[in-house]
Amino acid sequence: MTTSAPEHLGSGGDAGTLAAVSLTGVTKDFGAVHAVRGIDLTIRPGEVVAFLGPNGAGKTTTIDMILGLSAPTTGEVRVLGLEPREAIARGLVSAVMQTGGLLKDLTVRETVEYTASLFADTRPVEEVLANAGITGIADRLVQKCSGGEQQRLRFAMALLSDPALLLLDEPTTGMDVEGRRAFWSSIRTDAERGRTVLFATHYLEEADQYADRIVLVSHGRIVADGTGSEIKALASGRTVRATLAAADTEALAALAGVDGVEVRGDSVLVHTKDSDAVARYLLNETDARDLEITAKGLEEAFINLTGDHAEGGDQ
């Protein structure tokens, strides 16, 4: 494969235990559209991982493959060592989607009972209703429930089978600050018991605050993978721009601290944590002129990592 190497920043290695999620060389095409272009990812049990990227980055497609809703074009997906559908059949994987997925003409309790009856083992329905704080509305029709109540019902359904892996799609959209804090504290408690949580988001801040690890995806590839502070360190760098014809991009990329090199016409842009070293190199070793150094913000780092110029260049 001709993928540009993602920036591995520490975590992500195999600790010897069975991986909660393991993707190996996964691609997914829809006709001529390459939604996922080669993802390798290992998530250990108990990790809380944010899947961060802009819309259309391939997050949903990847999550669909982990859930066994679609099969990869090439590569292999394993959940706790099993085929995704096998893991689902054992109640090991649950997902909470942002919208839909409920029958309007069932009551809250019927919805939970219905779902519970499909699994070999579940927690008691009453206990799950109580934990989700929806015992009081158990006999209400779903169509009469507010958006927040429906979201609590979705969580109740997802937690019925006591899943080892929980996938969440933009989980706290629409929650207030208090609800968000309570939500993440309960997610944390479960993670300590070994539940793995993978959540998709396009908010850098949410990923940074609540995840142990951030996997940044863009154009169907992982472009960065590390802790929140490691990802933020990317943002602490600067961009060095200079006018230079026929820049030696390989030599620039090899300099210590360089995160990325781009050529735009006669300009070369170097994203680096050590702008002094790049400036020194450009001025001493090359014909570079009009040199500029600018600081990057967090959002800009995100855009740099996920934007078009982060492409490997096979299209």
Binding site: L18, P45, L80, A89, R90, G91, L92, L103, D105, L106, E110, E113, Y114, A116, S117, L118, F119, A120, D121, D162, A164, R193, G194, R195
Partner: peptide
């Protein structure tokens, strides 16, 4: 609560077909 043990999980019989679902579906209808 106990620590999660993925190896202890079972698959439901009959592909999940059961009377509870049938009853709720009829009530719904």
């Amino acid at each position: 609560m106990s620590v999660l043990d993925p190896t202890a999980r079972r698959v439901p019989p009959l592909g999940g077909f059961n009377v509870t679902v049938l009853t709720i579906e009829l009530r719904r209808l």
